[in-house]
Design a protein around this nucleic acid. Structure first.
Length: 586
RNA sequence: GCGCCCGUAGCUCAGCUGGAUAGAGCGCAGCCCUCCGGAGGCUGAGGCCAGAGGUUCGAAUCCUCUCGGGCGCGCCA
């Protein structure tokens, strides 16, 4: 409907160009909107206002000329010029009824579009370090990222979801060493735990399993482990030097082979936990991409060579620097440290080179807001590699602050007492969890109220939407109990009986769903779908209270049943897209 | 100090790439089941869109500054 009107307007513009009112070279962006007020019809455009200057006419005169060029179509009952020069379109009400038929015919596919035209988009999200379970902060990225990916897919893009696993680097060594130290405790060795180690309970559990499986194979005497290790922080030393020394000690005492096994045990265990966690949250990936792989297969070296060949690398103070400042970054960045090790950023350059080489039309990265300073350097690297940096879209997700009623829930990663995503899901359930996370615009700081999310009352927006669905189901159960049969065709033939205000409003809202999905996908704004579903549910509940569906008149009854059936279908489509359940009873 | 995000009803937030009279939920004050599920509906009070300039037919929306809140500015990952 919307596209059709846009076409008509485009033709009118061409006609004005032919008449010499508008310059032929002028490109015109048609801006057609849903009218906010029913008095302004169904759609409105500000076209005449925008073209006032190039046409050198006042807006109302210009609007008249545009309207004169619009072919009369039986879709429209009226086109009028209003206010300063808006053109308002009134859609033939009969055509509005057809939305019920369209929804019925399309079923689960209603709302899907092909604007993506099969273009390949990669969406990378969460990508939390596998050094511990996901916490609530990752939850928002997971819910938002998967919703964006699912929306893009619904809009006709070919989507690949990816998780970048940081399985290389110092943090992983700290984890491996932490596990080993806990393992030694399991074996009966007595030794202090480093202040900088991972203290979470999960580390003990992994150590426990390792001990159960391997017995004392990796046991070494505590004296040897401790010998000549520099003091920890609480002993007046440097915690970083302390932990680094312990890592080295673990590597020497265990040897490369055994160290690798302990390391791998931790990585596997945690990654498995993250995968399960996300899967239970309705989040799945096509690829789990290993950082270590990039280092092992020479990709990092290759990326650096390419930067060097392009003249973007130089050496200073023993390190190798990438001249990102020349490409808009606030300063240059180290890619190879003076000790010869490549930095995390070097891996990331190689990773983005790899993404580009895979030929995606668009690359979407979803990051926590704390990484925003990272964007310029990654874009700089893409440019230096000769790539089109506009292919990369970085979406930032702001932090969520947890509340339980008035009280703020404290999170502390160090102590290992942080609230995990799993705990959150167990407390509020998957549906409320996803709904709440996606309900807010991603760049908006949000307060996540656990008390509200768990309340089974009218305060809770999740139940409100689900209840609308359950109510429709209930009406059909009631129909059954009364021994009546639904007559689909009779209802379709009598849609024109749906003339109540509540019914017109619902028909209009239903017809907006495809536009909402498109818009939400293009703008990466899944919260728009939530808002739409709340509005739809609200209108349904109003309708339910105002009118009886199971009336004696078979024609009217079946027309209404078809209408609420369409409501049900759209609720299902929207909620399913967001991976939220649609229970038939609650 | 520099950079990014945010500031809209008492609270939590929408506001359709600049449009017509700024919206919703919660909370508050009332009301509505002889009726398909009251986890619902209806009515009402509540706003200088942080503040000041600017851009134009028109600004909550764009630009500049100020004030407030969050987050970044490592040879960490």
């Amino acid at each position: 409907m919307k596209h059709k009107l846009e076409c008509l307007l485009q033709h009118a513009v061409e006609a004005l160009k032919a008449q010499g009112i508008l310059d032929r070279e002028l490109t015109v962006q048609i801006n057609l909107e849903r009218a906010r007020d029913a008095q302004h019809g169904d759609f409105a455009t500000n076209l005449a206002l925008l073209l006032t200057k190039p046409a050198k006419l006042n807006p109302r005169q210009l609007a008249e000329k545009i309207v004169a060029e619009l072919p009369l179509d039986n879709l429209l009952t009226k086109v009028e010029i209003a206010g300063p020069g808006f053109i308002n379109f009134f859609i033939n009400p009969d055509s509005q009824f057809q939305i019920v038929r369209q929804i019925h015919d399309a079923g689960p596919d209603f709302g899907l579009s092909s604007i993506g035209a099969g273009k390949r988009v990669q969406v990378e999200f969460v990508s939390a370090n596998p050094t511990g379970p996901l916490h609530v902060g990752h939850g928002r990225g997971a819910a938002y990222g998967s919703a964006v990916a699912d929306l893009l897919e619904a809009a006709g893009f070919e989507v690949e979801r990816e998780y970048y696993v940081n399985d290389a680097g110092r943090q992983m060594d700290i984890l491996a060493t932490s596990i080993w130290l806990r393992y030694l405790e399991e074996c009966g060795e007595v030794l202090p735990f480093p202040s900088n180690g991972y203290r979470g309970e999960y580390v003990r559990e992994i150590a426990f399993k390792l001990h159960k499986k391997a017995g004392n194979d990796y046991r070494r005497p505590a004296e040897l482990v401790q010998e000549d290790i520099p003091a920890d922080e609480h002993q007046g030393g440097d915690k970083e030097k302390h932990i680094d020394a312990l890592i080295e000690r673990a590597k020497t005492l265990l040897g490369a082979e055994q160290y690798r096994i302990v390391f791998q045990a931790g990585l596997d265990e945690i990654l498995e936990d993250i995968k399960d966690d996300l899967e239970e949250f309705g989040v799945t990936y096509q690829h789990w991409f290993s950082e270590r792989l990039l280092m092992d297969d020479g990709s990092v070296q290759e990326a650096l060579q390419r930067l060097d060949a392009a003249g973007f690398l130089y050496r200073q103070e023993g390190a190798t620097w990438f001249a990102s400042n020349r490409l808009g970054d606030e300063k240059d960045r180290v890619v190879v440290r003076d000790n010869g090790q490549t930095t995390y950023f070097a891996s990331d350059i190689a990773y983005h080179m790899n993404k580009l080489d895979r030929g995606f039309d668009r690359i979407v990265n979803i990051w926590g807001a704390d990484h925003h300073g990272y964007i310029p350097r990654v874009k700089a690297a893409m440019q230096a590699l000769g790539a089109d940096e506009s292919k990369l879209k970085v979406l930032l997700v702001q932090f969520a602050v947890l509340y339980r009623g008035e009280e703020r829930v404290q999170m502390s990663t160090r102590s290992g007492e942080f609230v995990t995503l799993r705990q959150l899901r167990n407390e509020v359930g998957k549906d409320a969890c996803r709904f709440f996370y996606v309900m807010r615009k991603s760049e908006q700081h949000m307060d996540f109220d656990l008390k509200l999310a768990t309340s089974r009352s009218n305060e809770n927006p999740v139940y409100y939407v689900q209840y609308a669905h359950a109510r429709v189901c209930s009406v059909f159960r009631q129909l059954d109990e009364k021994g009546r049969k639904r007559d689909l065709l009779l209802g379709m033939d009598n849609l024109n009986l749906l003339t109540e205000d509540h019914e017109s409003a619902l028909l209009l809202t239903l017809s907006k769903y495809p536009e909402i999905l498109e818009r939400a996908a293009v703008l990466y704004e899944p919260h728009q779908v939530i808002h739409y579903l709340r509005e739809l549910a609200n209108q349904f509940h109003s309708y339910y209270n105002a009118h009886q569906f199971l009336v004696d008149d078979d024609k009217l009854c079946n027309a209404r049943l078809n209408l609420i059936s369409a409501v049900k279908q759209v609720l299902i489509n929207g909620l399913t897209l967001l991976k939220i359940n649609t229970p038939e009873t609650m």
